[in-house]
Simulated assay, not measured.
Amino acid sequence: MGEDLLKLRTEFARLQALLAERGLTMRPPPTEPTTCCGRGCNGCVWEGFYAAAAYWLEQARECLDAADPA
């Protein structure tokens, strides 16, 4: 989970910088869970976080694409 999380944080920061640079606003990316027990539960809070993160990334990229002049 460590390397994936680092890559995700980096991509969040990169897209947020691009959005700000272009004057676009969007909700902040999802926050990382703080309640994981580490037992690999079915339906772990990290599964929900990664699903929400993927959706945020998709929406951010769509926002940037829509703002690009054709």
Rank of each mutant, 00 (worst) to 15 (best):
G48N: 10
W46M: 12
R27Y: 03
C63H: 09
F12I: 07
Y55G: 11
C44V: 06
A20R: 03
C41Y: 03
A66K: 15
G43N: 09
L57N: 13
V45F: 05
L57E: 09
A70S: 11
C36Y: 08
R14W: 00
G43F: 00
Q16P: 01
T35S: 14
E58G: 08
E62C: 08
R61N: 14
G2K: 11
W56K: 14
F49T: 06
L19M: 08
C36G: 09
L5Q: 13
A70H: 07
D65G: 08
G40C: 07
Y50N: 06
A20G: 00
G23E: 05
M26T: 05
L64H: 11
T35N: 15
L19F: 01
L19I: 01
A20E: 01
Y55M: 12
C41D: 05
E3A: 12
T34P: 05
G23K: 08
F49S: 10
L64P: 13
A17E: 02
A13D: 12
L57R: 14
R39I: 09
A70K: 09
A60F: 00
L5T: 09
Q16H: 06
A51M: 05
D4V: 01
G2T: 09
C41A: 12
G40F: 04
P28W: 04
A67Y: 03
D65V: 05
A67I: 00
T25C: 03
P69M: 03
G48Y: 02
R22I: 00
R39T: 11
T10A: 14
Q59I: 01
E47I: 05
E58R: 15
L6S: 15
G2I: 03
G48D: 08
T35D: 15
C37D: 10
R22C: 03
R27C: 02
E62Y: 05
T31D: 12
L6R: 15
T31H: 11
T10I: 01
T25M: 02
L19V: 00
L24H: 11
R9I: 00
G40R: 10
G40I: 04
G43H: 06
C37G: 15
A66S: 14
L15S: 04
R61A: 08
E58M: 07
R9P: 06
T35L: 07
N42W: 01
G43K: 06
M26D: 09
L6E: 14
R22T: 02
E21F: 03
G2Q: 10
K7N: 14
G2R: 13
W56L: 08
E32W: 02
L5F: 10
T34H: 08
V45W: 06
A70C: 05
C37M: 10
C41V: 04
F12S: 14
E62P: 04
D65Y: 03
C41T: 05
E62A: 15
Y55H: 12
T35I: 06
P28C: 05
C41F: 02
